[in-house]
């Protein structure tokens, strides 16, 4: 390695090699981005927000683990999951804005803020469409394991079907996401079993986390009307059986009994009804962006 080149490359030179290292493919390269005939553009946009907000909000929670994990190797793993989900969120929010620009919050004339950021940073909590499982505050390491396991099992089942979506962009995002979610699920499943069978304390903590998150589990499979009516969408209720089978496998190996089902009543995160935690989380997430609506980042 040349002493000078690393530093001197800063001014000028080819910048394409720098973004996040090398060899990152654009998952949307060559994908047809027109809204297919027979698909309602606004419904498509709202559906993209639902899936995109899930991943954005969960990514934010996962990234809070950065520099706090039990071991360096797990710190790196959790950051990988957060980055994967953030990548999915960006594609989905951008898709939402492209499908129906009217859903993007208005910004001052001439603002350089891109649509994905306008959606992420300039909506109120009540405009977010994520499931509440994604937003509840972090707990201990068992909590992040259980949340990731429950979420990734459900999301993987949805994405597997979504690969065949009538919307080419959703199909491409799903194809990318399936690989990522499969890995998240495996990681979470391995840790779930490890904590369940590790020590008395780890088992106790795992069961506590499961108990805390279980009331939000049903919502993962509760369809919003758009998830049922939109031809390009996947009704999460329809993948419940296969998702349950996967979860039961993990629970069996971990020697953990499946908790009693707790149903979902009334409005949910998909309707914009959230826990108290979301607005606090957004206050932190959005503070810099909102202070500079004309800012260029």
């Amino acid at each position: 390695m040349n002493d000078e080149s690393v530093y001197d490359g800063l001014l000028g030179g080819d910048s394409s090699q720098w973004a996040f290292g090398t060899d990152f493919e654009d998952p949307l390269a060559g994908v047809d981005t027109t809204v297919p005939a027979g698909i309602d553009a606004t419904e498509l946009a709202v559906y993209c927000l639902m899936l995109g907000d899930d991943t954005l909000v969960l990514s934010q929670r996962l990234s809070e683990w950065c520099s706090r994990a039990p071991e360096l190797e797990e710190d790196i793993a959790l950051a990988n999951f957060a980055l994967d989900l953030l990548g999915q969120a960006r594609l989905l929010l951008a898709r939402a804005a492209a499908a129906d620009p009217s859903i993007v919050p208005p910004l001052p004339e001439g603002s350089p803020v891109p649509a994905e950021d306008a959606l992420a940073y300039f909506r109120e909590a009540g405009q977010f469409r994520n499931v509440r499982m994604a937003e509840v505050p972090n707990g201990d390491f068992a909590h992040v394991v259980v949340r990731l396991l429950l979420f990734s099992i459900a999301r993987l089942a949805v994405l597997q079907r979504l690969r065949g979506s009538a919307d080419a962009v959703l199909a491409a995002v799903a194809a990318k996401g399936v690989k990522e979610l499969a890995y998240h699920r495996d990681w979470a499943g391995r840790w779930f079993v490890t904590l369940a069978l590790g020590t008395d304390e780890s088992r106790r903590r795992l069961l506590t986390a499961l108990e805390q998150l279980w009331p939000l589990h049903d919502e993962l499979f509760t369809a919003h009307p758009i998830e049922k009516s939109l031809a390009a969408a996947v009704d999460p209720g329809e993948v419940r059986a296969e998702a349950d089978a996967v979860l039961d496998q993990v629970l069996a190996v971990a020697e953990v009994e499946r908790p009693e089902p707790i149903g979902t009543r009334g409005r949910t995160g998909r309707d914009g009804l959230h826990t108290e935690a979301l607005s606090l989380m957004l206050a932190e997430m959005q503070v810099v962006a909102r202070a500079h609506p004309m800012g260029l980042w």
């Binding site: 973004a19 996040f20 954005l56 934010q60 990234s63 809070e64 950065c66 950051a79 957060a82 980055l83 953030l86 990548g87 969120a89 960006r90 929010l93 803020v113 891109p114 994905e116 950021d117 992420a120 940073y121 932190e284 997430m285 503070v287 810099v288 962006a289 500079h292 800012g295 980042w297």
Partner: peptide, 15 residues
């Protein structure tokens, strides 16, 4: 990381 002012910057910083 939690306050990065754009999603692109958030990804870069987290990475």
């Amino acid at each position: 990381i939690s306050r990065a002012p754009s999603l692109r910057r958030k990804a870069i910083l987290l990475a």
